[in-house]
């Protein structure tokens, strides 16, 4: 029988991963963790962001009032109203979320999550979901006010129930990714604001009169498809196929941008 002390076998150093390794505590599962992050983020947003939601809504309503002098009825009116409604989502989900993740990364806040056994997707989806659902009241108010201003039918406003979460997913994924990938916090804020300006200019202004290059940029912006879906629903007889197609693109972009955001989070958390 060998009586060589374990120490001698192992050499001077410790022997990692030997048979006596302590059991690992269980991981947090995806859905409960997502729910916990969502709840915490929603409460954060409630406390800190209500004034900003007012600003967002005010901005959108203001734009519609301004454009009422220029645009009267028809296609342009529809795209102004739907663009302004989705702009609220862009303001909160893209701009504020980019800012938030930029801040979190710069201030070492990601460490808190990185030292908990939580799936990265739960952190990103929870935050994105909270910011997106936080935009609901502002979007609805803007859409209703817009319908009144431009005398558009409100019968199909329920389409918002799909437009907000889907464009919310797409824009908040983009916002989170920008915030997490930007090398510096100020750049994250800047990117978020640029993204929102793009959503404003490309989403609200009627598409017909734009130069071709801008039309391309418009097609690349995820919020465009939410805007179009909503605009279609204001038609006297909505083209439901077009609505569904636009929402489908929105959903696909949403999945993609959330996946990118999750990847960006992993990258930022594991420095």
């Amino acid at each position: 029988m060998s009586v060589v002390p374990a120490q001698a076998v192992a050499g001077a150093g410790p022997r990692p991963d030997d048979g006596r390794a302590a059991p690992l505590a269980p991981r947090a599962r995806l859905l409960p963790a997502l729910a916990a992050v969502y709840r915490a983020q929603l409460s954060r947003a409630r406390v800190a962001r209500i004034p900003l939601l007012f600003v967002a809504t005010f901005q959108s309503v203001g734009i519609m009032v301004l454009l009422r002098g220029v645009v009267s009825g028809g296609d342009p009116a529809r795209s102004v109203v739907s663009g302004s409604a989705v702009l609220v989502v862009a303001f909160v989900a893209l701009n504020l979320l980019a800012q938030y993740f930029g801040q979190l990364r710069a201030g070492g806040g990601l460490d808190h999550y990185a030292t908990l056994p939580v799936p990265p997707a739960a952190v990103v989806l929870g935050a994105a979901g909270a910011y997106a659902s936080f935009t609901v009241p502002g979007t609805v108010v803007t859409a209703v006010v817009g319908c009144l201003l431009f005398q558009l039918p409100m019968a199909h406003l329920w389409v918002l129930a799909a437009v907000v979460p889907l464009s919310g997913a797409a824009l908040s994924g983009l916002g989170a990714a920008l915030g997490l990938l930007a090398p510096r916090q100020e750049l994250a804020t800047l990117c978020g604001q640029l993204g929102m300006s793009a959503a404003l200019l490309l989403g609200v202004l009627p598409a017909g009169r734009m130069p071709e290059a801008i039309g391309w940029a418009r097609d690349l912006l995820p919020s465009t498809y939410g805007v179009e879906a909503l605009a279609h629903s204001f038609a006297p007889r909505p083209d439901w196929f077009a609505v569904c197609a636009d929402l489908g693109v929105c959903a696909a972009v949403g999945v993609l941008s959330l996946a990118v955001a999750t990847w960006a989070y992993r990258r930022a958390a594991a420095r």
């Binding site: 963790a33 916990a36 954060r44 406390v47 979190l104 201030g107 070492g108 806040g109 056994p117």
Partner: peptide
């Protein structure tokens, strides 16, 4: 640092961390 928790209430910060610890 505590920036991840700054805007939460104490109770929610503790509870959320517990949930995320499984």
């Amino acid at each position: 640092e505590s920036t991840a928790l700054d805007e939460l209430t104490v109770a929610l910060a503790v509870e959320t961390t517990g949930r995320l610890r499984g």
